[in-house]
């Protein structure tokens, strides 16, 4: 009985994590698409994601699911650290997005195949 309870608790917890993850992805997608927040869509298309008229200033995002989370976070926080001539804004360093928002964007980026 105790064991079943434990498993049930774990299952609830696990689904909770999945649920929170899904929420974060959703929030990230919203930031990605919304002009007054991240507006990533202004410059980037994303592989396998249906977007309404993504721009072409930046590369089409693909294979990001294989990137470590930290690399994605750093890229959004300050792209100049890895590419000093990038035209991409430093969303974290310049205070456009806060820590939580960048984490949400990263969660969304991790879904891009």
């Amino acid at each position: 009985m105790k064991k079943i309870f434990k498993i049930a608790t774990l299952a609830v917890m696990a689904s909770g994590i999945v649920y929170a993850g899904g929420d974060l992805v959703k929030e990230g997608a919203k930031i990605f698409k919304t002009k007054k927040i991240g507006n990533c869509i202004a410059c980037h298309a994303a592989n396998g994601v249906k977007l309404d008229g993504p721009g072409s200033l930046g590369p089409k995002l693909q294979g990001l699911s294989a990137w470590p989370e930290k690399a994605l976070y750093d890229k959004v926080y300050n792209p100049y650290t890895t590419n000093p001539i990038s035209a991409m804004p430093a969303f974290g360093k310049n205070g456009v997005l806060d820590d939580h928002q960048i984490k949400a964007v990263v969660a969304f980026l991790k879904t891009i195949k």
């Binding site: 869509i41 202004a42 721009g55 035209a87 804004p89 310049n94 205070g95």
Partner: peptide, 23 residues
């Protein structure tokens, strides 16, 4: 706060798109 210069879009970026609009 986006650290863009006028030239980012209108020299190097001219012809590329922000959303559907060519710069």
């Amino acid at each position: 706060y986006l650290q863009l210069s006028c030239a980012t879009c209108h020299v190097q970026g001219a012809g590329q798109r922000v959303r559907n609009e060519k710069l």
